[in-house]
Design a protein around this nucleic acid. Structure first.
Lengths: 170, 170
DNA sequence: CAGTATATGTCAGTGTTGTTGACATTCCAA
DNA sequence: TTGGAATGTCAACAACACTGACATATACTG
């Protein structure tokens, strides 16, 4: 179904970058690159009792301190039960603290402790180092293209979450 | 590692695309985009008894028919026990066949059956549709940049595997 | 040929991370 | 004030990765 149509429908323009072969290469690039993307933090976490899920939670708590469990849930796209297990161990180990909401006591607001911040720093340093090296090798224009394509690949809700975070930090 | 050239090339120029904030946005973009990237096949597979691991195996067997177990192992980056569990169910369900090697009888060469090919088609149609839409929205230059950055983000071994596959197909 | 290396498969056990279901607490609105 | 919605917690289970140990068949080497 996707064969040939991509080239024939839009014939006239130069749409060679939309051939199935190009798309498949894009798919494989995503697969291999994502492995590299997570490799460094994974290595660090392997020695501890934590995994990728803990990394993600720590990252976004660092990013938006005081965020609620529910908010984090939406960003991470997992069930609250799944997130809860991760948060419980992080709280037990003293990396995260959870404060009952002042306005709405049902809510828990999440913060990193000093120890949590320290781990976040270690992990993001490793991940940023690879990203920086890739960005530098590729150059600013490639980086702009990289981000454009990634944003177009997200679900709409994730695009919103991403944009919201982006604006918060900038 | 390639720092010399790129630093000297860009030193003095605008390196704002390498700030921590930019890197963090790149990291978050990868995270959210990868979710979108796997979302469609995941939805299809959820109804069947298969998961993402089966999808990956099917993809690369389709991509390199007759590949050996060992080869697949290296591409997927999992243990043989883990891959074996997946392959066993795929073979039992009649999606994959394994043929004893003619030259080296220790090897098993893997192929998709018609049924396996049909599932592969369904899954990759879904994934390509999203990739095509993202590529089209972003345009050819962005796509080139996207691929440049992803390739720079891979581990060297994965880069080789990726290039080998790329050349096979093109 | 004997001994070693390689390719594959299997069993058992464990850890992380996702799922659903059940339930407690808190808030809010009829 | 009472019932429903929102928020979060606990328990049990499934998928899929891992390690370690071992079996089998085949290939290679001295």
């Amino acid at each position: 179904m996707s064969d040939g149509r991509s080239t024939s429908t839009y014939s006239g323009e130069n749409l060679l970058f939309l051939t199935d072969e190009q798309l498949r290469q894009g798919i494989e690039a995503m697969f291999f690159a994502y492995r590299g993307f997570t490799a460094d933090p994974d290595r660090i976490l392997a020695d501890m009792a934590y995994g990728r899920a803990h990394h993600r939670a720590i990252h976004f708590i660092h990013r938006a301190p005081g965020t609620t469990v529910n908010n984090l849930l939406n960003i991470l796209g997992v069930t609250k039960q799944s997130l809860n297990r991760v948060l419980r161990t992080l709280i037990e180990q003293g990396l995260v603290i959870s404060k009952v909401g002042k306005v709405d006591k049902r809510e828990r607001h999440l913060f990193l402790t000093d120890e949590g911040s320290s781990l976040e720093q270690t992990l993001s340093d490793a991940q940023r180092a690879r990203m920086r090296s890739a960005f530098r090798d590729a150059g600013p224009e490639a980086v702009a293209g990289f981000r454009t394509v990634l944003e177009a690949m997200m679900d709409t809700e994730m695009q919103r979450a991403y944009t919201r975070l982006k604006e918060t930090g900038a």
